[in-house]
Amino acid sequence: MKKRNNMKAAALAGGILISSALIPGCAQPESLGTQPDPGQSRADSYEQDLAERTSMVHSDFCVAENMLPCVYGPPPDETDFLPEDNNPEEVYGPPPEESSSWSGSNEPEQSDFLPEDNYPQTVYGPPPSQSLLERFLGWISSLFW
């Protein structure tokens, strides 16, 4: 299954050195990735990250989709809503540690930051995907149930 992002991947990306003594089946200690290149500032990384992600973002906040993505995962899509539509760069300011002048106002004029999974539908998991074929088969089976 394709993984968009997860804790371990984020740790790997950030060069986090973790202790795995409390994780059954893991050796201790375990190094996840390498330390960040000191020549590249975090601000640079954010800028690159932002540039990549803003290319996917093209419209504004979709209020109808601002529903609870509870631990059970969101319900399947009923609309053509695209998670990219939930324009996150408008609401995130820069990380506080990068800017001592950060005020929390989150106006887009500031250098924005996008977390990896800034999609309301995916907070606790992506929407259960159901292809047209799956839906068709589901409909067929429902006729006989």
Binding site: D49, M67, P69, V71, D117, P120
Partner: peptide, 27 residues
């Protein structure tokens, strides 16, 4: 979250205009 980790708060409470949508992905 600012560091890119999928850490999030639940749906429990209104947290005010500064924290809303910053400790979770939705309002």
């Amino acid at each position: 979250r600012m560091q890119g980790f999928p850490v999030e708060y639940g749906c429990s409470h209104y947290l005010g205009p500064q924290l809303e949508r910053e400790v979770r992905n939705w309002y």
